[in-house]
Design a protein around this nucleic acid. Structure first.
Lengths: 239, 239
DNA sequence: TTCTTCTTCCCCCGAAATAGGGAGGCACCG
DNA sequence: CGGTGCCTCCCTATTTCGGGGGAAGAAGAA
């Protein structure tokens, strides 16, 4: 642990990877380069884990998913609200479910020290890059301090790849809304009623409805709420 | 342009900064270190720019805000849907509003080359770290290739500071929605009517309404559409 | 020039959402 | 054990939204 790492080499290979298996291999390589027990990248999603690669035992990954730990894992919960990389010690382990999870994790070969970097992409995408090890606190503090920048970059590059592998997340489905349509949807999105929006824009409510309808049509939305959700997801409007 | 940059020194000073003025000074220092025309970090928000620091002329910043370019700036629109750092040349400059914007920007001393890194934090926070310069394409391509990693790290550290300065974005401020509330809002966001949502969740429409109301209350939303917009912006639901 | 898109305005009516009440059961935490 | 939050169900009104029409001028693109 604590070696000098060939960051450039790893990032280049990461960039050149075209398969999930390739990512998996790189996690192993990163683990060895850093001299730690485990490296894990995983995409966190309400629909369950879409991508994950890392050096944890399969049995633990399996168990993790089966137990629905995605919803209770204190690492995920804690990282979700943070931007900084997070040392596991600073998380909230006081709840009952967290204690159960911790005991279970340690029993499956997960190390007692962890450092997780939250990463976010477009449309609410969220992922974690984690390095895990079994050692004393001092040693770990030194390691994380020495390598935090390399880990941030690595997290970034891993997520870049994961987003490439996920075609739905691409920017290709770009619609264009007219200025008035954007105005209308934006005001609706901040809670105005149609009447308020019409008044704000100084147009009749009927006219407003035409904008909403045409926006709905362009976005392929089933109703106003759907149109606003799509416009937000696509970044066409911002709230 | 293209010098060897004292990344460690800059990042350490960035870490030690406690004021917005300090951030502003660092943008100037980074600009000089990289030998480029401009460095800008800004937080993007519908409420207008909350934080921004950089080396653009005040007159341009003023003009930018007055013209409402936050809504039409192709850099923002383009970056919002991407994770990769973006070279401005790869953006869509074909629309009328984009051409107007470009002309206006060049007239205000903005360079013809740009490289912007999108950054995202908790609760839908979104910011951009941009480096801008006036030069030929080849020179620029070489620069961005040589410095992309440094720029990513710098973007990360700038955003870290901005989040520190914004108390509302702290981890404790986050709303939590119950699983049923998330289900309800998610289904509404994909266009289901209340009746369809109730059926999908196998609950009565009345029960569903209670979820929507409590979610609305938690999110401080004025109506269902607003609640969904907020939940999406905050990353509480994903569509 | 012609054609499309954007902008603005108007009608009616049925369907859907909202607002305001209330009530019981279950699980967890201190 | 009592509080809190979550899940479930029910009522009645009123307001708002959605879909069905149609129409006209202005601006920009082909």
């Amino acid at each position: 642990m604590g070696k000098k790492v060939d960051l450039d080499g790893i990032l280049e290979d990461l960039d050149a990877t075209t398969t999930l298996d390739g990512l998996q291999e790189i996690t192993e390589r990163v683990r060895d380069a850093f001299g730690v027990d485990h490296i894990v990248y995983h995409w966190v999603d309400s629909a369950g884990e879409q991508y994950g690669c890392g050096t944890y035992d399969d049995s633990w990954v399996q168990h993790y998913l089966e137990q629905g730990y995605l919803r209770t894992d204190p690492v995920i919960i804690g990282c979700y609200q943070r931007f900084h990389p997070v040392d596991w010690k600073r998380l909230d382990w006081s709840t009952k479910s967290a204690r159960i999870f911790l005991k279970d994790a340690l029993a499956h070969g997960v190390g007692n020290q962890g450092y997780s970097i939250p990463i976010r992409g477009p449309n609410g995408q969220f992922a974690l890059f984690t390095v895990n090890h079994n050692c004393e606190d001092e040693e770990w503090a030194e390691f994380t301090e020495n390598h935090s920048r390399e880990l941030i970059l690595m997290a970034h590059y891993f997520n870049r790849k994961a987003l490439e592998f996920e075609p739905d997340r691409g920017p290709e489905k770009a619609q264009t809304l007219s200025p008035r349509e954007i105005d209308a949807l934006t005001l609706l999105a901040i809670g105005y009623s149609r009447a308020q929006v019409a008044q704000t824009l100084s147009i009749s409510e009927h006219t407003l409805r035409v904008y909403i309808e045409s926006a709905r049509f362009k976005l392929g939305a089933l109703n106003t709420t759907h149109a606003i959700a799509r416009a937000l997801s696509c970044g066409l409007i911002v709230v």
